[in-house]
Simulated assay, not measured.
Amino acid sequence: MRSTRWAGGVTAVVVLGGMLVHGTAQAATTADAVPGKASAAVVQQSGTSEKDVLAAWTPERMRAAKPADVPTERHGAEPQSHVLPAQSAPGAAGPKVRPQGPAALAALSQSQVWTTHGQMPATTVGKLYFDEPDGGHQCTASVISSTNRSMIWTAGHCVTDGAKHWYSNFVFVPDYAGSGEPLGRWTWKSVSAPNGYFDGKDSDYDLAAITLWPRDGVRVANVTGWQGYKFGSGYDWNVYEFGYPFDTHPARTGITGQQLRYCTGTTWRPGIWPFQPDQEAIHCDQGHGASGGPWLDDLQLAHGWGYLVGNVSYHPDDNSDEERSPHFGDAAINVYNAQQAA
């Protein structure tokens, strides 16, 4: 196993204003030289075979994988740019979806276990395993709409340390429900994150996308279904939030990391103008392990999909249930477009 690092000879792609700029590691300098560099996407291609990635994740290592460390709030000197046109797409049901009927969205800040597996939305959400230099870790990720039918979404701190070092050996296990792999394992082909997180660990950019290899010629979204997304839009949504937390904020007992949990509620932009981070907030207690979990607006249980408008990032106060996501502006658009081209 190895940890791929940003160094000479490592192929990189930087996305600036929706345009792909290809090159070697020196592409980071290109991002540094233009306005909006923090919103640009940096891309890493997998240099490890699918066989080796799968072999790295034995059942024992998966059980021992620790939840990713959650970053503290941190802001760089450059705000996220908002010049690209809004971008969105609907979700779609996978072959195993069964209508559940409509349900009213009532605020639920103390997360509960999601018990309905084997159908959307659960089939589109899963555990993301990866290697950091100190060993195996895990986060949450979700399958989203893409032309390559192979893209998942997670948090930036689940793919990079924020100091120009990538994590490695990413494996996605959708619809994880405490044991087993009902929809199999899917290995990574490439990953992208905003330069603002990759080089600076800025909380306003804590997002990432990963493209997965097909398995036996079948693409992941054609098995799981996929969620829609809305980028470059507002801050106020009515969402379901999903994740696999190992703890909660405030702390309570009985949270094991082995169950898919959810909250529901209304989001808002935190802070007081003009001192507002480019983030969204919600009341939800999900902690470590839920990182990267989707915030889904307008989730209709009758068809199992909604629109990805945020991802679990961090709690500004361990004793509060206020949880944060980066706002999905130009950085999300660039990261998404980079993986569309991967």
Rank of each mutant, 00 (worst) to 15 (best):
52 D>A: 15
223 V>R: 15
100 Q>D: 03
46 S>K: 12
38 A>G: 00
177 A>D: 09
2 R>F: 13
96 K>T: 09
190 S>I: 03
234 G>C: 03
314 Y>Q: 14
271 G>S: 13
280 E>N: 13
47 G>F: 11
151 M>Y: 08
263 C>R: 02
166 W>R: 06
158 C>Q: 02
85 P>I: 11
328 F>Y: 13
170 F>Q: 08
8 G>V: 04
126 G>I: 01
31 A>D: 09
113 V>L: 13
254 G>A: 09
12 A>W: 01
92 A>T: 08
1 M>E: 11
325 S>P: 00
209 A>S: 11
52 D>P: 12
248 T>L: 04
68 A>Y: 05
309 V>T: 08
36 G>M: 06
50 E>V: 15
315 H>W: 12
216 D>V: 06
87 Q>C: 10
305 W>G: 00
309 V>D: 07
205 Y>P: 09
109 S>I: 00
205 Y>T: 09
280 E>Y: 07
268 W>I: 02
139 C>I: 03
330 D>I: 01
14 V>G: 09
143 V>Q: 09
139 C>V: 01
242 F>K: 12
12 A>M: 12
263 C>P: 03
176 Y>E: 00
295 W>I: 03
158 C>E: 01
218 V>W: 06
116 T>N: 12
183 L>K: 00
240 Y>M: 04
153 W>H: 14
57 W>S: 07
